[in-house]
Design a protein around this nucleic acid. Structure first.
Length: 610
RNA sequence: GCGCCCGUAGCUCAGUUGGAUAGAGUGUCGGCCUCCGAAGCCGAAGGUCGUGGGUUCAAGUCCCGCCGGGCGCGCCA
């Protein structure tokens, strides 16, 4: 499993120029060692990074600062010796020592310009790498219970998970995208009961709708559909139905308890009653009706959002195979199960959890946790070397118990990474949009997509670090101006397309080879800045992928677009000189390619015209 | 109370895994279209990085204590 870990060295696999510099410095250090200096020092990882400040060159290394103590000399002196020993390279214009002992590298113009040809050669594969070596990683995300339509919170998990998956694929992992469908659990029974109760109301029955039932409008819609298609075939007396049930908990609109009760016991009993009164066949029909309608809606919603899955994994199939009971048995065999108060408990405290957890309730039902253990165990058994779960941050307390269970079963919990995504808060006209799941009054993902469009939604969702609360400004997402980063980036792409159209309209000849032959003419400061931005792309993709940080890519694309807009504003592409014109067209096309590649990873469309 | 996450420009956020003088966008103020799309560009102003210690050549970044905000702490999922 070691090979799956993100390498300890902060510089796992770097863009060609960086590795080139590292190689040169490694050679220099070896040379110094051969000469007797730096005795006893193991060849260290050599830090090289892009300089923040242009006066510090293009790349900087702090090796000398790190090794000075062991070498027992001043950092600047060590830097001097390394630089003096450094092999020459045509990609390096000059090397300087600065500050406390940094080694600053200044690249030759040719080293910048080469990236244009590289991008044009590689096309849509530019920025991809083989870092992952084809290892199989599973990314499970969204996995919302099919008890209602997706809301805006799920949307962030969808955009984030899909982008993380795309990024990992881009750096060479074999990615399996999966949605875990909770189609077996108690919540589904509650949905079925809710639909049926609304149906009874539709038939004219009076009844106290349970506090734990699903109240969304879609439940009534399903109930109405049941009535339209089957009339009174599912009608029973509501009075009989509710007789002698455990007292429900009743609250007023403000959420204050008016009548105390056990809402869980109430709803469970109600589900049982429903089953008994309807009989297996009719009950099953309503259950399936609700499940299928909602799941179809979720599937379509995500697909329209550009989120596609390799597999929709059914919890029910786990149960039907007996996997849940088998897993509990395995935990029991491992000595980690005990009985208390009639329930079965997993001793998760033995694995760092705060308290032990129930896997089977007193009434015999296995818990959500139990099937989740079975599911995660099965992920490993299916051959995934690395498993990533994307969860809402409110589930963070759940992490230790799942990892603990895996450990108890002899699996390595480090093979599971749980990425937590904070909620998104919608703002409209500077005001917080109401968002309450309790009453069923929430903004759905579909409503959001309809309002701001898929592109803006995808981009805004991943614009911020996932563990950061997201303020989603609806008005900004809809605006078509530079204020809106999505339009800003897309506009840069469309602009290049427009230049190409102009070139055709003006009948200006273009020769790709001539463009490549004249890349050396790209020496304007704006051109240099753009070339550097383009060269950074593979590094950005790699860092974004390995750290699970799509926002890095989003941020980068804005910077790249800015570099292009600035250049475009300052210089004409379609100049009369053939060589310069073709070189600038090549640069523009390379920019378009990178924007397109980056947006694709984010699931955002790259338009030719806007 | 305990645990996890977050405190960086008026606002929304980055900050290259510990590097050099902390950066963008937005907002405010001021400039740029006879010229490839002004859905754009350029400039100015704006900071005790919540706070107090510690670690070291070097801390916004790592450790500890406070302060403030969010979430979690069910035989719910």
């Amino acid at each position: 499993m070691d090979q799956l870990e993100i390498p300890e060295t902060p510089y796992p696999r770097l863009a060609p120029v960086k590795t080139h510099l590292q190689t040169l410095m490694t050679q220099a250090l070896r040379q110094l060692q051969a000469e007797g200096a730096l005795a006893g020092i193991e060849s260290p990882a050599i830090p090289v990074e892009r300089s923040r400040d242009r006066t510090h060159g293009d790349f900087a290394s702090s090796v000398a600062l790190g090794l000075a103590k062991m070498a027992r000399c001043k950092p600047r002196d060590l830097a001097e010796r390394i630089v003096a020993t450094l092999p020459t390279s045509e990609r390096i214009a000059r090397v300087e020592i600065a500050g406390p002992g940094f080694i600053n590298f200044f690249l030759t113009p040719g080293a910048y310009q080469a990236v244009v040809a590289e991008i044009l050669d590689q096309g849509e594969t530019f920025g991809r790498s083989t870092f992952g070596g084809g290892r199989r990683v599973q990314v499970e995300f969204v996995s919302a219970n099919p008890t209602g339509p997706l809301h805006v919170g799920h949307g962030r998990g969808a955009a984030f998970g899909a982008t993380v998956a795309n990024l990992l694929e881009a750096v060479g992992y074999q990615v399996h995208r999966e949605y875990y469908v909770n189609d077996a659990g108690r919540q589904m029974n509650i949905l079925a009961a809710s639909v049926w109760l609304r149906y009874l109301e539709h038939c004219g029955e009076q009844l106290p709708f349970p506090s734990n039932g699903y109240r969304g409008g879609y439940v009534r819609d399903l109930a109405a559909r049941l009535y339209t298609e089957h009339g009174n075939a599912y009608l029973v007396s509501a009075a009989d139905l509710f007789r002698d049930l455990p007292q429900d908990e009743i609250r007023d609109d403000a959420g204050t308890v008016i009548v105390p009760g056990d809402k869980e016991a109430h709803i469970d009993a109600l589900v049982e009653r429903a089953r008994a009164q309807l009989g297996d066949h009719r009950y099953r029909y309503i259950f399936e009706l609700g499940l299928n309608a909602i799941l179809d809606d979720i599937r379509a919603d995500l697909q329209e959002f550009g989120v596609v899955y390799d597999e929709w994994y059914s919890e029910r199939t786990l149960e039907e195979r007996g996997a849940v009971n088998k897993t509990i048995q395995r935990l029991r065999d491992a000595g980690q199960i005990y009985t208390k108060d009639g329930a079965l408990w997993f001793r998760s405290t033995a694995f760092g959890d705060e308290k032990d957890r129930v896997v089977q309730r007193e009434n015999g039902q296995t818990t959500y946790f139990a099937s989740d253990i079975a599911y995660h165990l099965e992920k490993f058994e299916r051959g995934f070397e690395w498993v990533i779960d994307v969860w809402g941050a409110d589930h963070h307390g759940y992490v230790p118990r799942v990892k603990g269970a895996l450990q108890a079963l002899g699996e390595n919990p480090d093979r599971l990474d749980v990425l937590l995504v904070q909620f998104a808060i919608l703002y409209r006209h500077g005001e917080r949009a109401p968002m309450s799941t309790r009453s069923g009054d929430f903004v759905t993902l579909r409503e959001l997509r309809d309002e701001v469009g898929n592109d803006a939604a995808r981009f805004f969702y991943v614009m911020r670090k996932s563990e950061q609360h997201l303020d989603f400004d609806l008005d900004l997402a809809k605006s078509q101006s530079k204020d809106n980063p999505v339009y800003y980036i897309q506009y840069a792409h469309a602009r290049v397309c427009s230049v190409v159209r102009q070139q055709h309209e003006k009948d200006l000849p273009r020769d790709e080879q001539r463009g490549r032959d004249h890349l050396a003419l790209l020496t304007e400061p704006h051109e240099e800045a753009l070339l550097i931005a383009l060269a950074r792309y593979p590094e950005v993709v790699e860092m974004a992928a390995l750290n699970h940080e799509p926002h890095q890519l989003a941020q980068y694309l804005r910077e790249l677009a800015n570099a292009f807009h600035s250049y475009y504003n300052e210089h004409r592409v379609l100049v009369s000189d053939d060589g310069l014109r073709d070189a600038r067209l090549s640069l523009s096309l390379a920019t378009r390619q990178v924007i397109r590649n980056g947006l694709r990873l984010l699931g955002v469309f790259a338009p030719e015209v806007m």
